[in-house]
Nucleic acid binder design. Structure first.
Lengths: 179, 179
DNA sequence: AAAACGATATATCAAAATGATACATAGAGG
DNA sequence: CCTCTATGTATCATTTTGATATATCGTTTT
């Protein structure tokens, strides 16, 4: 199978803004990006090693003065090129796994109250996430003239719009199930 | 790491309605379920073998009269129990990977027209999927008194509601990017 | 009648991702 | 001084993907 490590593009995208260590990258992914992409150390470190080998990123000299090792990576011209080619590639794969919907779909195997409870659990999580997204939004919309902030803003409003649709659906579903 | 094969639950859910072969299971997953869960042969066959070993499913006698081998599986009492325990488990993991949003987030690395094109591609796919969902919906709402159909209907309306929210967002995003 | 083709059916493999764990240092608070 | 949390790199078993191999069946084309 051909090379298809999606995590590479996440890392290249992050490195296109600033030099980062593997640990930094993990923190970035666990932040705002976490709403639409995940990544673990188990994929980040091997990806960095592989991309160094193929010349997409380069290891910077250890600038830490203490004893703790710290490997900062810098994106190369070739890395920028790979990132831009991916952006231009018209094939996209949006891979969604909603365990909530899976449980809903097979809800008939249990009592209806279990399904109602699962909808409650989903709703709670959505509401909590929405609070975070609202904070991101009001922070970002202050500086939409910044190109990057505009893109971040759009991903946030995508989240808000879909999460608000989730909440409306929850209310409708509950009503139908309680009839 | 503890046992955590999510594909097991998909298979158990499907087998709780009817006896199926691995190939049948793949077809079911590629149908309506595909909107919220995916599964490949490479996970289905090993899962069936493992679940037979742990007594969650059992292999039925080969009822095919010809020479082609065909292995039908039946869910056991233990399997039903596992399915119901999963439904009652309050921990859910909705794992969403939107490559579209990833490209949007890193859009600054390329021309703005690339981002606009990527939004168009996303919108086309969403519209096509919505057509399918509308057909499912009108077919299912004729018999909502059937318990199972009610659950299927709810997963379909979830899809419709979120996909319609996607479309509204596309329009807004385009407007903002073209300003 | 033969050939070609697509659907049916099981199975395996390399590559990728997850989630956990291991190990070690730095800094802050009690 | 000790404990706890954050920082930092790395690896491992397990799971999943997507591709490929192999073979039969039924239908359509030549």
């Amino acid at each position: 199978m051909a090379k298809d490590r999606k995590i590479d593009l996440v890392i290249l995208g992050l490195l296109s803004h600033e030099d980062l260590t593997g640990y930094d990258i993990k923190k970035r992914i666990d932040g705002a990006i976490n709403f639409f992409w995940k990544g673990s150390f188990g994929s980040i470190y091997p990806s960095l090693t592989a991309m160094e080998g193929s010349g997409l990123v380069q290891r910077l000299k250890d600038d830490s003065c203490g004893g703790r090792e710290k490997i900062r990576y810098h994106i190369t011209k070739k890395g920028i090129e790979a990132l831009r080619n991916w952006l231009k590639d018209e094939q996209v794969c949006n891979d969604l796994k909603y365990e909530t919907l899976l449980k809903l779909y097979f809800g008939g195997a249990e009592d209806r109250n279990i399904t109602l409870r699962n909808i409650d659990i989903f709703e709670e999580k959505v509401k909590a996430d929405l609070e975070v997204l609202y904070v991101y939004k009001s922070s970002l919309e202050k500086e939409l003239d910044n190109e990057d902030h505009l893109y971040y803003y759009l991903t946030v409003t995508f989240g808000i719009d879909t999460y608000e649709a989730y909440l409306k659906w929850c209310a409708k579903a509950r009503k139908l199930l309680k009839r």
